[in-house]
Amino acid sequence: MARGADEAEIKKAYRKLAKELHPDRNKDNPAATERFGRVTAAYDLLTDKDKRARFDRGEIDADGNPTMPFGYGGGPGGGGGFRGQQGAGGFEFSTDDLGDIFDGLFGGAGARQRGPGGGFGRGARAAPPAKGANVSYRLRVPFADAAALKPQRITLQDGKTIDLKLPNGVETGTQMRLGGKGQPGPGGAGDAIVTIEVEPHRFFTRDGDAVRIELPVTLDEAVLGGPVKVPTVDGAVMLNIPRGSSSGKVLRLKGKGFHTREGGRGDQLVTLVIDLPKDDADLIAFAESWGDRARRNPRAAMDG
């Protein structure tokens, strides 16, 4: 980078370096990951006018921490700076390599070559080593497992498997962080970020924390009532159909829905749907005779 570079050129150079050194592009190169952290921290200092001025005067070190009084070790006017000039057009540096400048700020080769009177100020500390990159996973969870919070097994990139305990209130988009299960780095491994996707079910649907289901029943079950078997996310249970139930009647099974974030659990709502056989001669004959006898209009209340 040419001398007299302005802030726009600094930004452009930083973006180029950041792109080259980004952990996602250097998964097998911990040194690049560490340098990426130093470059980013240095860029933040360079573009903060107040911090840059205090750094040049030797008042703070490259980490933003106070140095010895009056920039001790830096000579008259503060030796914590870059030994360049700041003019109306921006910053002028004594090097053409922005990467060296950034590294020099945080204990790189440039800093090690500078002695008393020409360095970045005594007391400057190296930035902590950068962690490795995070690794993202997407985990598809069966509907019933999500509702019942059944543990899910996931295989990580290193081949190891983990049984995940799903959180209360889990839904599609819920993220779980596994500390230290990401890419290795000089400052330790990054994290694994697991995003949950709840799979749709062939007859269950979700309504907030409740689970809904449409349950087909025969005409005699609806008319006479009695116990019928109903599937739930925890397995089948027996549900008593009230005598004389109509299609659309909703029955409730307590505690058979999704676990709530507060620690409770929603219900399962069962909507009855009377299922009639097609072209059944006996049923047709019965309906004709029964309808003539009843002469009831269930839509009377809707007449205008």
Rank of each mutant, 00 (worst) to 15 (best):
E20I: 11
E20H: 11
L21P: 05
L21D: 05
L21F: 13
L21Y: 11
H22K: 13
H22A: 15
H22G: 12
P23N: 12
D24W: 14
D24R: 15
D24S: 15
R25Y: 15
R25V: 12
R25P: 08
R25W: 14
R25N: 15
R25M: 14
N26G: 09
N26P: 07
N26H: 09
N26F: 11
K27D: 04
K27V: 08
K27I: 07
K27R: 15
K27W: 00
D28E: 14
D28V: 09
D28F: 08
D28R: 13
D28L: 12
N29C: 07
N29K: 11
N29M: 07
P30S: 00
P30R: 00
A31H: 11
A31Q: 14
A32G: 10
A32D: 14
A32H: 13
A32M: 11
A32R: 12
T33A: 13
T33V: 07
T33K: 08
T33I: 10
T33P: 04
E34W: 00
R35S: 10
R35Q: 15
R35H: 11
F36N: 04
R38I: 00
R38W: 11
R38D: 05
R38K: 12
V39A: 05
V39C: 06
T40C: 05
A41Q: 05
A42L: 01
A42Q: 02
Y43F: 15
D44S: 06
D44I: 00
L45D: 04
L45T: 08
L46V: 13
L46A: 12
T47M: 15
T47S: 14
T47Q: 11
T47L: 12
T47H: 06
D48W: 05
K49G: 02
K49Q: 04
K49Y: 00
D50R: 09
D50T: 14
D50L: 10
D50A: 12
K51C: 03
R52G: 05
R52V: 06
R52K: 13
A53D: 08
A53S: 08
A53V: 07
A53N: 04
A53T: 03
A53K: 06
R54E: 07
F55W: 12
F55E: 03
D56G: 01
D56C: 07
D56Y: 02
D56P: 00
R57E: 02
R57M: 04
R57D: 02
G58M: 03
G58Y: 03
E59K: 02
E59V: 04
I60H: 01
I60A: 01
I60N: 01
D61Q: 03
D61A: 02
D61W: 02
D61H: 02
A62F: 15
D63I: 13
D63R: 15
G64K: 07
G64L: 10
G64N: 11
G64E: 09
P66S: 05
P66A: 06
P66G: 06
P66T: 04
P66Y: 01
T67V: 05
M68L: 09
M68R: 06
M68C: 07
P69E: 01
P69G: 06
P69I: 01
F70C: 06
F70A: 06
F70I: 05
F70Y: 11
F70L: 05
F70R: 13
F70S: 09
